[in-house]
Simulated scan of single mutants.
Amino acid sequence: MDLKNDNKKITFNRDILSSTHINFLFGAGVNGNLFPQLNKFKRTEAVIKELGGNTEFGIESGIDDIDGESNRCKIKSVFIAEFKEFYKEASSKFENLSNLSLKNLMFLLKETYRLVHEAQNRNSSMKQINIYTLNYDDIVEQVLDRLGYFYNSISASNTTTKAALMNVIGYDYNMKKYIPSFMVNKLHGDIGKPIIPGREKYREMLNEEYFEIAFHMKEQLCRQNSILIVIGYSGNDKHINKILQDCLNTGLTMYWYKYSEDENLPSNLKNFNLEEQIIVVEQDDYNHPQDSTKVCYKDMMAAWEKKLDK
């Protein structure tokens, strides 16, 4: 079963956007070509092979072949070093916004801020935009810094000190109103304390510093009138898919943005209504796909600028 809908192009409804809790789930694909996918971590792959892992089906599969804590620590050390090199290169592109994927992410966050700011919604909790990311980098935070938006970020490195900020919403005392506030939740940690790819990440997610963030995600997505916009997520993390399933069972509406035609929904989500509860957004042309982040912000812009139906 693929994700293709019969409808031509599915966009947001302005009424929904103005009266809902907006949440995002970002996978590696949200960074587009700004940051490399796992298959580009060649030094990490080489170490996995040296230790006896088979990377034919990807780095995660290769890591799963490795036994012994010392071997896993060796892989983790090389992975972090290689990640930092890629991150340094990506960060250099912030100065002049030379990367198109970076611009698209900025436009998406800017458009989200605009619609939450302009919505005539007096429910203060709907001024908070949750971003759940599986990425270790702080690209989202750097974009929010550049835009000058109010935000907090939490990961395994700072759970003990920042957990109390999870529900903080900014307030403008001059205007006497709440302002759009972003909460960045790093589900797999950050480069200071990452969950390395592979089956062990499911066990590590049960550790307190990671579990608290995942539990908060479920709590937020189970709220009435919540939507989740999924961008760049492969659908391969069982622990995340279980959270999504539970939240869909309580009424969550999900928008799943596709990049390639052969992308499939996780098996545990296929029984939900694909026209009402899981809305799959197709590419206009899969031979020439656009950055899913760009498709999303254009959909949001079109919905918000459309006049309300009389």
Rank of each mutant, 00 (worst) to 15 (best):
N5K: 10
N13A: 07
R14M: 06
I16S: 03
S18I: 00
T20E: 10
F24W: 07
F24C: 08
L25I: 06
L25C: 12
F26M: 07
N33M: 04
N33I: 01
L34I: 01
L34E: 02
Q37M: 14
Q37E: 10
N39V: 04
K40S: 15
F41K: 02
R43Q: 10
T44E: 00
V47R: 12
I48Q: 03
E50C: 08
N54A: 08
T55G: 11
T55K: 09
S61C: 13
S61T: 13
D65Q: 08
G68P: 13
G68T: 03
R72Y: 06
C73E: 15
C73Q: 15
K76F: 01
S77Q: 14
S77Y: 05
A81I: 02
K84L: 14
K84H: 05
E85N: 12
S91T: 11
N96I: 01
N96A: 11
N99S: 06
S101I: 06
K103L: 13
K103H: 05
N104P: 03
N104C: 05
M106A: 12
L109E: 05
K110A: 14
R114Q: 14
V116T: 15
H117N: 15
H117I: 08
Q120H: 14
R122I: 11
S124V: 05
Q128E: 13
I131Y: 06
I131E: 06
T133E: 07
L134P: 00
Y136K: 07
Y136F: 15
D138E: 06
V140K: 04
E141W: 02
E141H: 04
Q142M: 14
F150V: 15
Y151M: 09
N152V: 10
S155N: 05
T159I: 08
K162L: 14
K162I: 09
A164N: 09
A164G: 00
L165V: 00
L165A: 10
I169Y: 03
Y173H: 12
K176I: 03
K176Q: 15
K176V: 06
K177M: 15
Y178L: 06
Y178M: 10
Y178C: 12
V184L: 13
K186F: 01
H188M: 12
I191M: 11
I195N: 01
R199N: 13
R199T: 12
E200F: 07
R203M: 11
E212R: 03
I213E: 10
H216W: 11
H216I: 05
K218Y: 06
E219P: 00
C222S: 15
C222M: 11
N225Q: 11
S226W: 01
S226Y: 01
L228D: 02
L228Y: 02
V230R: 01
G232C: 07
Y233A: 04
S234C: 08
S234A: 13
G235V: 05
N236A: 11
H239Y: 05
I240F: 03
I240K: 01
I243C: 10
D246A: 13
C247S: 10
C247A: 13
N249P: 00
T250Q: 12
T250C: 07
T253L: 03
M254T: 09
Y255W: 09
Y259K: 04
S260D: 12
S260R: 12
S260T: 11
E261I: 05
N264H: 09
P266Q: 04
L269D: 03
N271D: 14
N271H: 15
E276T: 09
E276C: 00
Q277H: 03
I279C: 15
V281T: 05
N287Y: 02
Q290C: 08
S292Y: 01
V295T: 14
C296T: 02
D299S: 11
W304N: 14
K306E: 11
L308P: 00
